[in-house]
Amino acid sequence: MATTTTTASGKQRRLAKRRNHDKWGYVFMAPFFIFFLAFNFYPMFYTIYLSFTDLAGWATEANMVGFQNFINIWNNQLFRRAVSNTFILWIVNFIPQIVLAFLLAYWFTSRRLNLKGIGFFKSLFYLPNIITAASVAVIFSSLFSYPRGPLNLFMLNLGVIDSPIDFFRSVIMTRLIVSFIQFWMWYGQTTIVLQAGILSIDENLFDAARVDGATDWQSFTKITMPLMKPITLYVLITSLIGGLQMFDIPYLLTGGGPQQSVETMITFIYKQAFQGGRNLNVAATASVVLLLMTTLFSLIVFNSFRTRATKTRKGVK
C-alpha cells in the first residue's frame, strides 16, 4: 500500500492541482460523512451521555448523576457475570477454533501432501457462517431439545444414554453448546484467512529450508508460524471484538439461562434497555464499558496494521 500510493498520488496531486478538481473530494465524501455523523457518531455520544444520567422506565427527562451509574455497574453482580461469561464463551470457542484452523491451513497448503478438493471442503466448512444466526440458534435449540429432541432420541436409540439429557438446564452443557456453535460458524472463515496468509509467504524460504534438510513440520514451526504472527494477532483481536458482541445465539438459545450462564454483555444491555424496568441508563453504562473494551482491543490491531501495511491486505470486518 505504502509505495504504490505514494507514486500514484504524486501523479494525481500534480494533475488534480492543475485542474482544481480537489474540491470534489469533499463533495464525494460528504454523504458518507453526514450519515456517519447522524447514524454512528451521534448515537455513540448519545449513549455516552445517557450513561451519566438517570434515564429509566418511561421517564422522558434525564438528570445528570455523574459517575453513579459506573459505580453501580461495578457492583452489579449480573453485569460482572455477563462480562466473565462473554470471555469464557469466547475463549472456549476460540482456542479449538484457531488450533483447527491452523492445522487445516497447514494441510491445505502442504505441497508434500498435495491434497485435492480443497476448494470443495473449504466452501463446506465456511457454509455455517452465512446462515442466519437466528436460524442457527433455533436449529440447535431444537436439535438439543428435551426430552425428545433429535440428539436425545439418537443417543437413546443407540443406547448411549438411559434417559434423555436436559442440555439447557445444565450450565456446562449450555455454555459448551454456545461455544460450539460459535466455533462451528467461524472456524471455516479463520481457516481461509490463515491459508491466504500462508500462501502469501515467499516460496523461496521453504525451498531454502528444504535444501537445508528441514522437515515439513520444522518449516511450519520455524518459518510459517513466526511469519504468521501478525495475521494471528489480527484474527485473535477481530474474533475477540466479534465475540464481545455475541447476542443472537445465546439470546435465542436459552435467553441467557440457565442461571445466567450464557448471559453476555449484549444480552445484558438488551434486557436492561428493552425488557422489564427499561433501565436505559444501566444499558448505556454497560455499552460504554463495552465500547472502552472494544476500543482498547481495536487500537492493538490498528497499530499492528499500520506497521505492517500491505502484505496481508486484511482488515475488513
Binding site: 455513540m44 445517557l50 444491555i269 455499552s287 472494544t294 481495536s298
Partner: peptide, 15 residues
C-alpha cells in the same frame, strides 16, 4: 479504519 473495528452494537442505546 476505527469504524471498521468498532461495531454498531455498542451504541444501540443512543441509536
Amino acid at each position: 479504519l476505527m469504524l471498521i473495528m468498532i461495531p454498531t452494537q455498542v451504541s444501540i442505546i443512543g441509536f
